[in-house]
Amino acid sequence: MTQATRNILIVGVGGQGTLMTSRILARVAVNMGYDVKATEVHGMAQRGGSVISEVRYGEKIYSPVIKKGDVDVLLAFEKLEAARWIPYLKPGGKVIINDVRVDPLPVMTGKAKYPDDIAQHIAELVPDTTIVDATDMAAECGSAKAANVVLVGMLAGALGIPGDEVEKAVAEMVPAKALETNIKAYRRGVELCK
């Protein structure tokens, strides 16, 4: 097994499910036999602030923290958070943006402006950018609640992870009655980023 180290940065807003996603990815990488390290920010940041988690896998991983400028795939659950972490992207890296806007406090109170075209602006700067409305897509598959699974699918597609590995992990984490919808949502995600 030879595999260059893959560095994945997952960002969003507290409560969006970024941690769940990074844990699925880390578990899948372990099941595939890789060395894996992951790190996440707890505490103060959970209260509606920015949240980030980092997952690294490959033959041998030392640092759980990704070096700035070394991110292979940036998965953003929210547009503004994508922008915040663009400087961490590797030249030629991939960005996946969930087309969701969550106003931070300074915007809600009118002290700052939300850059409306931020996703398109990122796409202009980073050639390998995919923008998706995961909630819409999940709704098409049967339930808007499966939005995060669409994003997991996109991540798996971008990283070239074999589908059955992730589907096993998804099956372990969602209730049985929601499984079919989730697998459908997952596969739609994979298709988007193949």
């Binding site: 807003v13 103060m44 940041a45 509606g48 503004l80 663009i86 931020i118």
Partner: peptide
């Protein structure tokens, strides 16, 4: 030194934590 990162031409407002 780090490789040159794409430079955003937009102001990115901070996202401080807040009461639920």
């Amino acid at each position: 030194t780090l490789p040159a990162a794409p430079v955003l031409q937009r102001d990115i407002p901070p996202r401080p934590p807040l009461l639920c």
